[in-house]
Amino acid sequence: MDGLVSVNLNWGITFLIQMGAGILGNSLLLCFYNFTIITAQILKPRDLILNQLVLANNLVLCSKGVPQTMAALGLEAFLDWAGCKLVSYLHRVARGVSLSTTCLLSGFQAIKLCPSISRWMEVQIRSPKSILLCCFLCWVLHLVVNIYMVRYITGPVNSKNLSMEKIYRYCPPPNPGNLLFSVMAVIYTFTDGMCLALMVWTSGSMVLVLHRHKQRVQHIRSSSLSPRTSHETRATHTILILVSMFVSFHALASILSYWITQLQNPSQWLRSISVLVASGFVTFSPFVFIVSDTRVSQFFACWKKKTNAPRMFSGL
Rank of each mutant, 00 (worst) to 15 (best):
G96D: 07
R126F: 11
L90I: 06
G83C: 01
S118Q: 04
H91I: 00
I125L: 15
C114R: 05
P128Y: 07
I117S: 10
S88V: 07
L113N: 00
S106V: 06
E122K: 12
S98C: 13
S116P: 00
Q109K: 05
V93K: 12
R119L: 13
V93M: 13
V97T: 14
I125P: 03
S98M: 05
R95P: 14
S127N: 11
K129I: 15
L104Q: 08
R95L: 15
L86M: 06
L90A: 10
A82V: 09
I125F: 10
C114M: 02
V87Q: 09
R95E: 07
A110E: 03
V87M: 05
T101A: 03
C84G: 01
S106R: 05
R119H: 04
H91W: 14
Q109V: 06
S88A: 14
K112I: 10
W120I: 11
K112Y: 03
Y89S: 00
F108N: 03
R119T: 11
T102E: 13
A110M: 12
I125S: 00
P128F: 11
S127T: 02
V87G: 08
A82W: 09
V97N: 07
F108Y: 10
Q109S: 01
C103H: 04
V97D: 06
V93C: 12
C114I: 04
M121Q: 11
P128T: 13
P128D: 07
R92K: 06
S98H: 06
H91S: 05
T102C: 14
S116Y: 07
V123A: 12
L104M: 11
A94M: 01
I125T: 09
E122D: 12
K85Y: 07
G96T: 05
I125N: 07
M121D: 13
S118C: 03
R126Y: 13
K85N: 04
R119E: 14
V123G: 09
C114A: 03
R126C: 08
I111T: 02
W120Q: 15
L105C: 11
Q109F: 00
L105Q: 11
V123T: 13
G107W: 12
C114T: 02
P128Q: 13
K112N: 06
H91P: 01
F108V: 00
K129Y: 15
V97Q: 10
R126A: 10
C114F: 00
R92F: 09
P115H: 07
K129N: 14
K112T: 15
R126T: 13
S127A: 09
I117F: 10
Q124C: 08
I117V: 14
H91C: 05
L90S: 15
V93I: 12
C103I: 01
R126P: 10
S88E: 13
G96L: 05
M121V: 11
S98A: 15
S88C: 09
F108Q: 02
K112W: 08
E122S: 07
C103W: 01
L104D: 04
A110H: 07
I111Y: 01
K112V: 10
H91Q: 03
S106G: 14
L90N: 11
Y89T: 01
V87H: 10
L105I: 00
T101W: 05
V87R: 08
C103Y: 04
S98N: 09
G83R: 01
